[in-house]
Amino acid sequence: MNKKEKWDTIISPHHSLLSLNIKEIWQYRDLLRMFVKRDFVTYYKQTILGPLWFFIQPIFTTIIYVVVFSRIAKISTDGLPPVLFYLCGITIWNYFADCLNKTSTVFKDNQSIFGKVYFPRLITPMSIVISNLIKLSIQLLLFILILAYYVSVENLTFEIRVELLIVPLLILLIALLGLGLGMAITSLTTRYRDLFFLLQFGVQLLMYASPVIYPLSSIPEKHHWLLKINPLTGILEGFRFAFFGGVGFSYDTLIYSAIVTIIVFIIGTFIFNKTEKNFMDTV
């Protein structure tokens, strides 16, 4: 047997650029499962309302948005009932914001574990995206319930459309985008803490730069390009289009969003991988 080939583990300072090591992540899949379970179980421990909190948050946000943006500011909702319009936007936006916010502090929040034991660090941001996915599905259920109410009681016309099939793809895209951005930010914050402060209000501002509380069609045509630079635009518009149809959406925007998302995700993974090795020395 060749002597050089039989080492199972080699630790050295140099490694290839995109050594993702998917095999290793697969070996630790049970850890991923445990992290997801931990996030989910501990979320509502020692609360009275328990899992109901998953519903309360979007309901109240929707009520506030209806009052402020629809009634007071009178922003168009593209002919949809304001409740459905906002709930739809909030549900998918919150998923993105949660993924981004939580993954962007992965290194900071997990210092004590990362400093003591090795496992593929990528497991942690992945677990965040997955446990938030569970939350998203619960909230999507709420959305569908309310949609059903509008269809049956308020006589909203709604048809099951083929375009609904792109919803899983949209969710995948927005998850990858949040994950990619978050991983890049958490890696850079280990050295430069400035980014952390930027992110804190950045996410809030980003919501106003994305069509969450207003439809793209309410913006003058000549400014559309400005909004379309934001890869979230295609995804958010696509999400509403999948459910309700409409004219404002084009697949070009979505393809652009997909390309940007994949680039961001690859860059994010690359920076994350590069940082995970030595972040303990700088964090």
Partner: peptide, 26 residues
């Protein structure tokens, strides 16, 4: 235990490494 990387040089090992730098991690 791969918590931090070396600056130079290498470690080669045969078999699974588990480290106990602290008990009850996580």
């Amino acid at each position: 235990s791969k918590v931090t990387g070396p600056t130079k040089g290498s470690i080669k090992a045969q078999g699974r490494i588990a480290s106990l730098l602290e008990v009850g991690t996580g």
